[in-house]
Structure formats: C-alpha cells, structure tokens
Design a protein around this nucleic acid. Structure first.
Length: 467
DNA sequence: TGAAATGTTGGGGCG
DNA sequence: ACGCCCCAACATTTC
C-alpha cells in the first residue's frame, strides 16, 4: 500500500486556506471524507436549514475533489477505525470544532489513533484566534467584548495569513461511500424553494459574495448594516459556519484595503464571532446555562400560542412578523431584525430564550452553536457582556428608524403593503378608513397584536426587579 | 448594538 | 418693558 492519509472534513468544506488539507496532501494519496455523526445529541445535531446547507455544501466540495469525497453516516471513531484498517492509513488530519461534544469526541479519537501509532493532527480552520490564546493576563477568560477585542485579540498577534489551495489530485474514494443524497439532508416537504433561489452553496460563491460585498457594501457598512432593506451586509455567515470561506480569508481581504472606519466596524463583527467562540470554549454549557445565574430564577411565561405566533410571523407586530417570515422563507434574518425579534420574544412575550435558540437553530442556514447561544444570552440579558435586561426594543420605533419607508416590512408582510408609512408599523392604531382603503382587516387579513407593547414592557421590567 | 420619564433651557406669545 | 406660561429641543436619569 502506498502512503495514504485521511482528510476528515467537518466545518471546513473548502479547498483554500485549509491547513489540515495541506498536511494531508503532503502524502502520496488522500482519502477525503465526511462523516455525518449520528451519535450527537439532538440539541447539537444540525437543524433543518443547516442540513439543507450541508447537503449542497457536500455536493460542491465533492465537485472540488473530482467526485472523490467519501461520505459516511455513523459514529466517527468507528468509521475511521474501519477506514484506517482498510487502507493501512498512517496519518489523519482535521480542522477543529469547539463545542464540548466535538472537543471530547475528537480528543478521544486523537488519543486512540495516536496509540495506534498514527500521526494525528488538528488545525485551526475556523477562527482568527484560538480561544485559549485570547485570555486576560492572569489566564482567565474575558467577559466583556471590548477589552476582549481591543486588547486580547491584539495581544494575541495578527491571525495567520490564509494558505493557498493545494495543487493535488491523488484522491482516493472509498467504494463503500454513501452518496450525499443518501444522508437524507434535504427536507421531505418542499419548503426550500425560496432558499434555493437565494443561496448558492459553494466555495466559489463565498468568494464572489465577499468580492461583491467589498465592491458594493463595505463603504456603507458602518451605517448601512443597520437597515434591513439596504443590502449593505455581507451575507457571509452561513459560508463561514460551514467553512466555504474562512474567517482569515475574509479578515485579510478587507484588512489589505486602505484603512477605513467601515472596515473596522466589519472586522469587529468578525470579532464578535471570535468572542462567541471564546465564550463557548470557556463555557461549554453556553447553549443551555445562563452565564448570569440569577436568571435561573426569572419568571418566564409559558404560552404555546404566543410561541407559535412568534415562530410563524403572526404576532400582529409588522417588523417582528417580517423578520420571522424572512427567517422561514430564506433561512436567514438581518442582524438588526434578529435583535428585535429576540427582544420581543424574551421581553415582550417573556418566553424563555431557549425557545428562540431552538427555533433559530432549526431555521437558520448560518446556525452556529457559538454565535447562536452567545447571541441569545446577550439579548436575554443573561450573558457575560449582555444587553441589560431593561434595554427593551420598541419594535415600532425601531422600524420607523431603520425601515423608514417600509421596504423591508412590505416585502415580507405583503398583506400590509398598501398601508401608508404612518401606520405600516402599527396598524392597530390606524383609523378604520385607512385600514379599509389598504384592504386590511385586523383579525382577518392580519392579526391583532398578541401583546400590548407598553404593558408587556412594564411587566418585563417588574419581573426583572424580582430577581 | 434603547426607551421612557424627568429635568433644563430658551424663545415666543400674551396679558 | 416685564413676568408668566407654554412647549419644543435637548440633556440627564432611570429602568
């Protein structure tokens, strides 16, 4: 047998800037594989939208590998054992994941195969800085974003430069590989039509989106990123999650341009992603456990009807419904609107942030354990460097501010499209004749609001005082 | 990466 | 001319 290495792809579905792949390609031949780990607990297994993304991500990676990606479903250690034996493999490479389950699983795998005499190496394929390299002087983790980013990340030094795509073609495909289709990642019911129109899942598309963003969005990013209808955001988050592009590629693509405050703002958003991973690494329970323990005693409401109305975009508050429908239709939601629907769920509806975390996990194509968990903790006020609980967004004021001419709301809540701007964001205050001439009948064509914004705000503040 | 309540200031109307 | 009130327009505080 010739010198064969295994390249185990996970959340790094790309050829460029992939250090594990580069090491694998130093061998005579490479067996590139993906394993759908069906032993993970339900709450960390990919949600529906992520599976959809993964399906096309694997197809595209397979193309890049000349059709030689081998795909398996099972317990990774078992799959790897049988491959190592079958091909007499002497080396195994992957890029790291940072959630507790993957960390434990991977370290067991590493220990096992090192014991078998293999070379086993893991690399950083996802982050600008490894979480354990960004700590305070005494080695404890940062709790606040600004010092984490301004001091911690700077002190950790410049991120490594992106590595080139390996010039290599000696791929081996296992004859027992599944087809990507066999993983059953696509939805049975055809809810993915709009998603298909919206997203092309490939490494090339990620690069082209980055180029477009630098061309058309970046120079307005600082202000424009807050306006959901404006298109000044990069839309790179799902590509970053599955690694169709790396954070380092994005970082250096903008850092190599003439300095500009828009670039600083954009980079600090990458910084928030790093911060989330740092929090997850040092708080393995981030997905479930409040960082601020006093929130364990918060009096959350339990109300299935309200939760369903929120999920379906039928709360009767237009900007909230627009956001939730964008999520459902596209697998994505603009960041500003994510804050609004999050605030609405945990503060106005006072439903537990876990419900939001679960729904986003299932619906977002960019669902990411670190970012999703950290962001829900942030908006709920129970996070490390959280939005204070009493900071409650007013969805009406916010839509007037950031969707002033109603383009975003009209796009996703078309039944209100004919309302004048004055009442578009608060149809419950519109006079009868205005509703009539816009063909809106509250309670029929569009719901009455399921909460009173003023009262629910006050109730949230009162409950907060209790803890 | 808020909003509402409360406080302060200053110009203009008016007796 | 003067004091008084009203009320934007800010500023500060509070949640």
């Amino acid at each position: 047998m010739t010198d064969i290495s295994i390249m185990w792809f996970r959340q790094d579905l790309r050829m460029a800037d992939n250090d594990a792949l580069i090491s694998a390609c130093r061998h005579k031949a490479v067996l590139p594989i993906f394993i759908f780990d069906n032993t993970l607990p339900e709450n960390v297994t990919e949600g529906s939208a992520s599976r959809w993304w993964l399906h096309y991500g694997l197809k595209s990676l397979d193309d890049s590998l000349d059709g030689c990606l081998s795909v398996f479903c099972g317990r990774p250690l078992d799959v790897l054992k049988s491959l190592v034996k079958k091909y007499d493999v002497k080396s195994l490479y992957w890029n790291r994941c940072y959630d507790a389950f993957s960390v434990r699983r991977d370290s067991e795998i590493k220990t096992f195969f090192k014991g078998e005499g293999l070379v086993v190496e893991s690399f950083n394929g996802s982050l600008l800085w490894e979480p354990w390299t960004v700590t305070k002087a005494d080695g404890s983790p940062y709790k606040v974003f600004t010092p984490f980013y301004r001091r911690g990340c700077v002190n950790a030094g410049a991120p490594p430069l992106p590595s080139p795509r390996p010039d290599f073609s000696s791929w081996i495909k296992d004859d027992e590989s599944l087809a990507v289709d066999d993983l059953g990642l696509l939805p049975k019911l055809g809810w993915d039509k709009t998603m298909k129109e919206m997203w092309t899942v490939s490494e090339a598309e990620a690069v082209s989106r980055l180029d477009d963003f630098i061309e058309c969005g970046l120079s307005n990013y600082k202000i424009g990123r807050d306006y959901p209808a404006s298109g000044f955001t990069s839309g790179l988050s799902p590509y970053l999650h599955y690694g169709q592009i790396s954070a380092r590629q994005v970082w250096y693509a903008v850092k190599n341009l003439p300095p500009d405050e828009n670039i600083d703002t954009f980079c600090s958003e990458l910084g928030w992603r790093e911060f989330s991973y740092n929090l997850l690494f040092f708080n393995p329970d981030l997905q479930r456990k409040n960082i601020r323990a006093k929130f364990d005693f918060f009096n959350w409401r339990v109300n299935d009807d309200d939760l369903k109305a929120w999920q379906k975009g039928q709360t009767g508050v237009p900007i909230i419904d627009a956001g939730m429908r964008e999520l459902w239709q596209t697998g994505f939601m603009h960041n500003r609107v994510r804050m609004l629907v999050g605030s609405f769920l945990v503060k106005n509806l006072r439903l537990h942030w876990h419900h939001g975390e679960r729904w986003f996990w299932d619906c977002l194509v960019d669902a990411d354990l670190a970012s999703n968990s950290a962001s829900w903790q942030w908006i709920a006020g129970c996070g490390a460097d959280a939005s204070p609980y009493f900071r409650i967004f007013n969805p009406v004021t916010q839509s007037e501010k950031f969707d002033g001419n109603g383009d975003y709301v009209r796009k996703f809540v078309p039944e209100l499209a004919k309302l004048p701007n004055k009442y578009l964001f608060r149809p419950w205050e519109a006079p009868e004749d205005v509703l009539l001439s816009a063909n809106v009948e509250l309670g029929k064509t569009y719901p009455h609001p399921i909460v009173d914004l003023k009262i629910s705000r006050q109730n949230a503040l009162d409950e907060f005082k209790q803890i």
